[in-house]
Amino acid sequence: MKKERKIQLVTDDFIEPPGEELTGEQAEIDALLRAVADDCSAKIDFEGIKQRAVESAKAKKAKRGRLRRAIGYGMVAAASLVVGLFVWQAVKGMNERVPNGDAVDAQAAERNDDGLTKHDPIADVKVYVGTVSEAEYTAFPETADEFFPENLPETMKKRVDTDAVRTSATGTDTKGGSLDYVCTVEKGCAKGLEVGEACSEKTGEDLWYYWQINENHYLKVRFTGFDQEDAEAMFKSLADRITMQQKDR
């Protein structure tokens, strides 16, 4: 009966069979080469390289840890804000009901003394953190294409006037009605707004939005031919875009 021998590998490394022993000239050159290689290698500051490698790696690890923590805190803060806003909106909605259960006219309740519809700043700034500093504002003329909401109908034809920081778009809706969008950056203060606040007003067919982006400038946006819900969504998209672009710079 054939006896089977079990061969067990001790390591994963291939164990080379012993080579031929070098003699004469081959042995001499072999020894010389080893000496040269050892001599060259001895001159290299391997300890220094190791130290720098470890220090650099540790610094990178620490930086990644800080970034992960910052992202974590940011996400918790953002989630808390969103939850808080939902709760606030729900409470606000409840408080607007009259005792017999009918809802009041939301627009009438929100009109200020000038007859303008004033949105609560917290509700409007929830996505666009609120301000663009003067230093950041100087970059605006270079980024005029930021002044279009992401959800603006694609069929609308866009125009940009960087000298005046004015963007506009025109088009038609599915029923053939005209659609118009204009966005400008104006100097001064709008409608008594605080920095970061926004408000809206309706005059005829036009829906106007004003956003006090810093102490000296405000954004003025007009939507014509859009219903209020769509206009509001586009304004928030626009503000979100501007704020995120500024933060990314």
Binding site: I44, K50, A53, A57
Partner: peptide, 17 residues
């Protein structure tokens, strides 16, 4: 030499990580 040293450092930095 200098470049080889820099690369060696980068390799072992990655190894450490």
């Amino acid at each position: 030499n200098e470049t080889a040293e820099d690369i060696t450092q980068q390799v072992f930095e990655r190894a450490y990580l």
